[in-house]
Simulated assay, not measured.
Amino acid sequence: MQRLLAIIVIFIPGIIAAIGIKLMRDTLFDDFYAIFFYGSIQFIVGLILFILGVAFLGGFIIYRDRKKQKRQQQYIDTKEDG
């Protein structure tokens, strides 16, 4: 269950970042959506979505790596004691 939750947590920000890339690409190729009044607004929203998605993914990976490093360090400490 925890692995499924972790996959969902990784999947959603990945989709948000992909939507941001798509919005920026569509702006560059003159494909505008009606909800955005100007192309620059569409590009900025896409950039913000991309940055937020990548930042969340990066933070999740850093958190996981730090957590694993602590576990490995505890294992090494207990192995030296015994």
Results as ranks from 00 to 15, higher is better:
Gly46Thr: 04
Leu47Asn: 06
Ile44His: 04
Ile62Gly: 01
Ala17Ile: 04
Gln69Phe: 11
Gly53Ser: 03
Asp30Pro: 00
Arg3Asn: 08
Gly39Trp: 02
Arg25Tyr: 15
Tyr33Arg: 10
Ile51Phe: 08
Ile41Val: 15
Asp81Asn: 11
Ile16Val: 15
Leu23Cys: 05
Ile48Val: 15
Thr78Ser: 14
Gly58Glu: 05
Gly82Lys: 12
Asp65Ala: 09
Arg71Cys: 04
Arg71Asn: 10
Asp26Tyr: 06
Lys79Val: 14
Phe29Ala: 07
Arg66Asn: 10
Ile21Tyr: 07
Tyr63Arg: 05
Phe29Asn: 12
Asp81Gln: 13
Leu28Gly: 03
Leu4Trp: 04
Phe60Met: 10
Arg3Cys: 03
Asp31Met: 09
Gln72Ala: 13
Gln2Met: 13
Phe56Gly: 01
Lys79Ile: 13
Ala34Pro: 03
Gly82Pro: 09
Gln69Glu: 14
Ile41Gly: 04
Ile19Glu: 02
Ala17Pro: 00
Ile19His: 01
Arg71Glu: 15
Phe32Ala: 05
Ile8Ala: 12
Gly53His: 01
Phe37Cys: 04
Phe60Gln: 06
Gly58Tyr: 05
Gln73Gly: 02
Phe60Val: 02
Ile48Gln: 01
Ala18Cys: 13
Ile62Lys: 10
Ile12Glu: 02
Gln69His: 11
Gly46Arg: 00
Val54Cys: 01
Pro13Cys: 02
Asp65Met: 14
Leu52Cys: 07
Leu28Gln: 07
Asp26Leu: 03
Val45Cys: 07
Leu4Pro: 00
Leu47Val: 08
Leu47Met: 14
Ala18Ser: 12
Arg3Ala: 09
Tyr38Leu: 06
Phe11Arg: 05
Ile62Asp: 10
Met24His: 02
Thr78Arg: 13
Gly14Phe: 07
Leu23Ile: 13
Gln42Cys: 07
Phe43Lys: 04
Phe11Trp: 13
Gln2Lys: 14
Ile16Pro: 00
Gly14Asp: 00
Gly14Cys: 06
Gln73Cys: 00
Phe50Val: 00
Gly39Lys: 00
Ile35His: 11
Gly14Lys: 03
Lys67Cys: 08
Lys22Leu: 14
Ile10Tyr: 12
Ser40Pro: 02
Phe56Ser: 04
Leu5Met: 06
Phe32Arg: 07
Ala6Arg: 08
Arg3Asp: 07
Thr27Arg: 00
Ile8Pro: 01
Ile61Thr: 13
Ile8Gln: 04
Ile19Ala: 09
Tyr38Lys: 09
Leu47Gln: 08
Gln74Pro: 02
Met24Ala: 10
Ile41Ser: 11
Asp26Lys: 03
Leu5Val: 07
Ala55Gln: 01
Leu28Ile: 15
Tyr63Trp: 12
Ser40Trp: 08
Lys70Thr: 15
Thr27Gln: 09
Leu4Glu: 03
Asp30Gln: 09
Ile21Arg: 02
Gly39Leu: 01
Ile10Pro: 00
Asp26Ser: 06
Ile48Ala: 12
Gln42Pro: 01
Leu28Lys: 05
Ile41Leu: 14
Glu80Trp: 08
Arg3Glu: 04
Lys67Gln: 13
Ile15Phe: 05
Asp31Ser: 09
Phe11Ala: 14
Ile76Ala: 08
Leu57Ile: 15
Gly58Thr: 11
